[in-house]
Amino acid sequence: MPIRTKALAVLFAALAAMLSLASAARAQTVLLNVSYDPTRELYRDINQAFIADWKAKTGETITLRMSHGGSGAQARSVIDGLDAAVVTLALAPDIDAIANATKKLPADWQTRLPNNSCPYTSTIVFVVRKGNPKTIHDWDDLVKPGIQVVTPNPKTSGGARWNYLAAWGYAQAQSKDDAKARDFIAALFKNVPVLDTGARGATNTFAQRGIGDALIAWENEAFLLLKEFPDKFEIVVPSVTVRAEPPVALVDGNVDAASTRKVAQAYLDFLYSPAAQAIMAKHFYRSFKPEGAAKEDIERFPKVNALGIDAFGGWSAVQATHFADGGVFDQVMKAAHP
């Protein structure tokens, strides 16, 4: 008997300890930022800065949790109930999908923060092998026979949609003709030997597996690659590219339920502060307000001729025309494999 009593006492003590730990954790404010794949390093630095900033201002210690994954998959998690305080995704349509499906944020969410709710933008560039052995300088060079191009599947990767749009924008500017632009896209994807599901996967295929002559990639991803393999690759800036705008938004329904609206809003505002803008530039993202950033971080960005999403008629038109079931991308792939 005494042994059993003792065991029970230990059990209760353990339970009590767990409960008190749990309640201590609850007392602290926890924010969940649901983001897309390549932003891990970026938000690790930003979160650290924000936690220090918030503590200095209010004396309150908060915890920031991150969730990373493909932008579309992340949006679906939030739709299915992941209690994100803020979402920082690759494409506006993914946040639109959350707004439409859950009504947890208003349809006009993108007007609530400066620069279409994009604290930074990025662009699309080519990465080629050192010395540029296949002399790739512009989009035209990618559709030549015998050239292999690595880009992820626009169906599963947000970054790949920007790649696709940049190619489309170039072809459109050249021919002013949709049918010719479509042929250009067909020729481009004919040269793609591997369609990875995400941007990081495509980078690996190109860099680690040695597949392809050119990689179409996020600018930040390209810089990261050069940093990791200093003497193996070069960046090529095409004559036309896109201004990719990864937006951020407060998920009102979730922050109101957890009464964390104030700090979550402060977190998003902080993304526009000089400190955070400098961190973004450091991680190769083009800050919205580069004044606060280190000069050498800004200077390394090449000048680009970048089209915004409006040049393509806005996201809903782009989705419906190009990426929806049976859209231009599907048609092009179908035509290539009768």
Partner: peptide, 20 residues
């Protein structure tokens, strides 16, 4: 390689539909 009509498996097609 995940090329439609060539090396795209059915489970990937399911994931693609979900992405849409």
């Amino acid at each position: 390689g995940n090329l439609p009509y060539v090396s795209e498996i059915a489970p990937l097609l399911i994931v693609i539909k979900l992405e849409e």
